[in-house]
Write a protein that binds this DNA or RNA. Sequence first.
DNA 1: TCATCAATCACCATTTATGGTTAAAGTTGT
DNA 2: ACAACTTTAACCATAAATGGTGATTGATGA
Lengths: 222, 222
Amino acid sequence: MEMTKQDKPIRVIIADDNKNILESVQAVLNDSQDIHLVASFGSAIECVENIESLKPDVVLLDIDMPAMTGIEAVKIIRKKFPGLPILMLTGFEDDDKVFNSICAGANGYLLKTTSLESLIFQIKEVYAGGAPMTPVIARKMLNAFAKQQTPQSASEEYNLSKREKEVLELLVKGKSYKMISTQLNISYETVHTHIRRIYQKLHVNSVSEAVSKTIIQKILRH
Amino acid sequence: MEMTKQDKPIRVIIADDNKNILESVQAVLNDSQDIHLVASFGSAIECVENIESLKPDVVLLDIDMPAMTGIEAVKIIRKKFPGLPILMLTGFEDDDKVFNSICAGANGYLLKTTSLESLIFQIKEVYAGGAPMTPVIARKMLNAFAKQQTPQSASEEYNLSKREKEVLELLVKGKSYKMISTQLNISYETVHTHIRRIYQKLHVNSVSEAVSKTIIQKILRH
DNA sequence: TCATCAATCACCATTTATGGTTAAAGTTGT
DNA sequence: ACAACTTTAACCATAAATGGTGATTGATGA
């Protein structure tokens, strides 16, 4: 894949709730001949609303934003603009979020700690059809791919509380009570209580039933 | 993932039908303290046959070889040695082949045009749990993943026996060991044994993991 | 025929999961 | 301020699952 000089600059928009990030990205991209930062937004909603009119070539999305998260934004954008390259921005390698973003249709991600010159390179790369990611994330993707793991299944129908959904997610991923308690930083007994409620609400009485029910549910919604 | 100094060199074997490649790789690896090229083979078959006795830490496989291709070799090796890192070697970015290699279980790939110093680095990386690949290939993987495609080879068989499949079916339906034993008219301990084997073959160690894996697999096949 | 694998069963020890019950602190909305 | 709900946590007892080891029978195939 050869990188030829752009006749027209790559149109980029960005959404990030952190002003500092926005500003520094702006500064760098404005210096570039090949990239034109068309607009920047402080929230995902604004960004999504303006894509149609702005017609960007590449979208940069902070993965963590209040109200609408970057992941949700990806889903919406991907649905309306199947081919539009989307890069996620994240402060650190939050595996699950990056993983879910990618499942939602993101084309790669950038660590905010990445050098800003590298940013320009990565934007060009994703525009040219590449997918920036580090070997560690790549490996995770491959593993997940090989295992055909489930991304994320939100179980709305059963009136599960936020915490209960979290716990159920982890159960579906095959975690034990103990692992869940560690991961969520709560006691084993609390996990036990949550699972009790989950079982009540789902009308099941074992992990395997809960897991089946949850996955099937999720699939059927598509 | 931190790269610490190796106390023992990484044991590497390579298969490539091109003598020039073999020789230059040999030359480079022999200069390295951290890597020990244990053996090199001119064909995939020889390579596969000798893995067991050589116990390498990393395998390098040319993607294009006569008789048995690298891809076929990957499948075989991956089956016998689930955790063994495999790097594919290819002359150019043959997307499909690389893609299929990865689906077959390769952990990354190297262009033969890559600098030989880089080669050492990449070997260390895959040994440490990374997955060397270029952005273009990564993009393909992501697309396939997002679409939840099942590439030819990725719909792995797990070599479950007839009985094991039956037991797994019931597990997925949420049945307990006891219920399964009743339904199949076999003892609890036999169920236990079957499940043991199933876990081995699926590389899991709990019902929930087995169930997730199985359902996803099944659903994705259509 | 010898080797391999599928299917069956058992004994053991240990870890996990499940169900019943209780309860305190925090949140939210009326 | 009160009700309703969420999240947290604990105690107890029992059921279930997991892992190690070993073993027998029959079928299949080199």
